[in-house]
């Protein structure tokens, strides 16, 4: 029986709970029986043999769970096998996720996280901790949401010699830029509509200044290209200065403009001219990545970069990857 603890019960944590309920049979077929032994948000929790259905409705109705054990108490003392770390991202300190993950790994527990912060701040340290304690750290959900990238490159493109990876890693920026391309409206107007639609945060600076994409790029660089880089190593430019006329001139010459995060010789996040017929020219809130390899040529992936179930689905794929009983060769 695999024992699961879910820390962080906002959008992503609830998404994980929903998928564990909805996909129970499918998941158990691959990994065997599992149960959830603890769920915690920032101020409340529920422990024992957790009824996820009940926990979800309780959180929805009262905005909290019934118990008072803290997240940290659970991470430190409870006997779980795998920790789902779904707390909010802080790319400067990595907290509170960083302490949760370190504590769990030191105890030899597997960790699956959607939280970029800890990986941006301490990727190498966390990997060493996992190795030393013979446990695994899954972080597919930190980059590109449901778009497969981490395991795709690590497993399926293993041995192909990864040269460069670049892509569109922020759906909010891509939504704004693709509307500017099509409708030629000013940046500010589309941004305020995006905020109204919930596509952009009330404070959109994290997205539009390129910080979110840069954080993901650091994870890609460290995890997939063994770069050993920090957030400060990324040259970052946002999308705020772009004008409808910029799109007009670009399109006339066969290009559009997209915010591209790229790691090769250097790391940079900046608006780039993308040929209109290029596979990275995607529209709306989608994410996309191009992996440029030595022996496998170019590989493209496109998918939903955010969303409750999309992000949770990436975490479920990590769960199955860690515990899979099936031999994939047949």
């Amino acid at each position: 029986m695999i024992k699961i603890a879910i820390i962080g019960f906002g959008t992503v944590g609830q998404g994980v709970a929903e998928l564990l309920l909805r996909k129970k049979n499918e998941i158990e077929e691959r990994i065997g029986k599992f149960k959830v032994i603890a769920v915690a948000d920032s101020k409340s929790s529920v422990v024992g043999d957790v009824d996820l259905e009940k926990a979800l409705s309780e959180k929805k109705k009262r905005g909290r769970l019934s118990g008072n054990k803290t997240a940290m108490e659970i991470v430190e003392d409870f006997e779980y096998d795998v920790l789902f770390e779904c707390t909010p991202t802080n790319v400067e300190s990595g907290e509170p996720g960083l302490t949760h993950i370190k504590t769990a790994l030191k105890r030899g527990k597997n960790v699956i996280t959607s939280n970029k912060g800890p990986l941006v701040v301490a990727y190498n340290e966390l990997c060493k901790l996992a190795e030393k304690n013979s446990c695994k750290l899954g972080f597919e959900a930190t980059v590109g949401g449901a778009m497969p990238l981490i395991k795709l490159v690590k497993n399926d493109l293993a041995g192909s010699g990864i040269l460069r990876i670049r892509g569109i890693l922020n759906g909010t920026c891509n939504y704004i830029l693709s509307r500017m391309e099509v409708e030629r409206m000013p940046y500010e107007q589309i941004l305020s509509e995006a905020i109204e639609l919930g596509i952009a945060e009330a404070d959109p600076s994290y997205d539009v200044k390129g910080i979110d994409a840069a954080a993901k790029l650091v994870i890609i660089a460290n995890a997939l290209l063994e770069k050993n880089v920090r957030f400060e190593d990324v040259h970052i430019e946002g999308i705020e200065d772009l004008t409808p006329e910029a799109f007009e001139v670009a399109v006339k010459r066969g290009y559009t403009i997209r915010l591209i995060a790229e790691v090769g010789e250097t790391l940079r996040v900046s608006p780039r001219l993308v040929p209109l017929n290029h596979p990275l020219n995607i529209y709306g809130t989608l994410n996309a990545a191009e992996i440029i390899t030595e022996t496998a040529g170019r590989v493209f992936v496109i998918g939903r970069g955010a969303g409750k179930l999309e992000t949770a689905s990436a975490m479920i794929s990590d769960l199955i990857d860690i515990y899979d009983r099936r031999d994939l060769r047949c």
């Binding site: 290009y255 403009i257 900046s270 608006p271 780039r272 993308v274 440029i292």
Partner: peptide
């Protein structure tokens, strides 16, 4: 002045 560079098409 903001410079928007193209994607580099080489491997």
């Amino acid at each position: 002045i903001k410079v928007v560079e193209p994607l580099n098409e080489e491997a």
